[in-house]
Simulated scan of single mutants.
Amino acid sequence: MIQKILILAAFLISGLTSAAQNDYLESDAEDVEKTYIGGESYEVKTFSQNFKAKKPKNVILFIVDGMSLPHLHAGLTANKGSLFLTNFKYMGLATTHSANKYITDSAAGGTALSTGQKTTNGAIGVDVNKKPIKTILEEAEEKGLATGLVSTSSITHATPASFIAHQESRNMYEEIAADFLKTDIDVFIGGGYKHFTERKDGRNLVEELTQKNYRVEQDINTIKNIKNGKLAGLTASEHNGRMDERGDMLPVATSTAINILSNNKKGFFMMVEGSQVDWGGHAGSTIYVVEDMLDTDRAVGKALEFAAQNKQTLVVVTSDHETGGMTILEGNYETGMVKGEFTTGGHTGIMVPVMAYGPGAEQFTGFMDNTDIPKKIRKLLIGN
């Protein structure tokens, strides 16, 4: 028990910024973390459902890592019955198994969502034979669209890495960082600064990014004022911390990326990951799940605000897998109280929600596999 308390204390204080890439898997919440007692709610806008065409010019894909219906409902309850996500009128469910396991990890789940192909657990942007698969982000680049990635984790972590890197192991962080230099991605914002600078091969990828005309910044308050050009926002040495440390980094980074990418007259594709709902599930912490569901929802609100005004942008929200086997034992819409319970400290095979808003949103209804999601996006955005 004493050891568990010490682990939890270190986990809460550090916010994961000084932890190793996978330390979030080692956390274990006490009963005090199982109940979110409630807090201040935020106002949610209702957006117009009128759009300019049947196909989008821009696509914003949100991956809420670890989310299934209980996590979503926990967020809805905590914000007293209202979320930006309730603007989504077209909804479906997706299966998430990998090529070799009923229970996927984030690498295989991310690769399925980025390429439309199944792969083995642990693999990043490669097929079952370890051969690279072109991602939807890379295809968008080839069509002249602007591209971007945003994450509250390290930008080299499994989910964002799956859209830009091709490595046989998700743990090859330095190799994944080097893969960014092989692309023309316009904007990426997340942690992972050390994987670009403190490297075994001696390369300084920040210097190389600068030579490729990227503006490299670490302070989100500086990043949020950038309106154009190429941007590498590396906001933490490894992962960004929990909400009490990182603040509104995700909504701010989402808005910043949209502002920059929308300068491209041909359109854009971007992926935004709310990484740490997954970590709350691993920790068995309702509090952690709720705070990151609400943080991601506010980021979704920024995307919806742009999409409603632009009228040419498709916003899709889904997850790579469920984490924690979460259920809700009690709640209160008036106070925002949520009492959760978790059946596992790992992932499960439960289906995940798929939600869509904008031109082409009607394509994302019913039962589907996670590989269907990028195929639908590709057909709508790229045309093949």
Rank of each mutant, 00 (worst) to 15 (best):
residue 264 N to M: 04
residue 259 N to A: 07
residue 213 N to Q: 08
residue 252 V to F: 06
residue 182 K to C: 07
residue 226 I to C: 05
residue 226 I to D: 00
residue 246 R to C: 05
residue 172 M to V: 03
residue 243 M to G: 14
residue 175 E to W: 08
residue 235 T to Q: 11
residue 235 T to L: 14
residue 206 V to G: 05
residue 175 E to T: 04
residue 209 L to G: 01
residue 261 L to Y: 11
residue 231 L to Y: 07
residue 226 I to P: 06
residue 242 R to L: 09
residue 264 N to H: 07
residue 254 T to L: 01
residue 193 Y to M: 13
residue 170 R to H: 13
residue 223 I to C: 10
residue 238 E to H: 15
residue 194 K to R: 15
residue 181 L to C: 08
residue 252 V to T: 09
residue 201 D to E: 08
residue 231 L to M: 05
residue 226 I to A: 03
residue 239 H to M: 10
residue 218 Q to I: 06
residue 259 N to K: 12
residue 200 K to I: 05
residue 256 T to Y: 00
residue 265 K to C: 04
residue 233 G to M: 03
residue 212 K to W: 09
residue 257 A to N: 04
residue 233 G to V: 03
residue 242 R to S: 10
residue 181 L to M: 12
residue 250 L to D: 04
residue 232 A to H: 13
residue 171 N to M: 10
residue 241 G to Q: 09
residue 212 K to D: 06
residue 228 N to E: 04
residue 221 N to H: 12
residue 219 D to N: 14
residue 260 I to C: 01
residue 246 R to T: 00
residue 201 D to H: 11
residue 218 Q to V: 10
residue 209 L to T: 01
residue 177 A to W: 05
residue 218 Q to D: 07
residue 198 E to H: 12
residue 263 N to H: 09
residue 176 I to D: 09
residue 247 G to V: 03
residue 203 R to W: 06
residue 210 T to R: 15
residue 239 H to E: 07
residue 247 G to W: 02
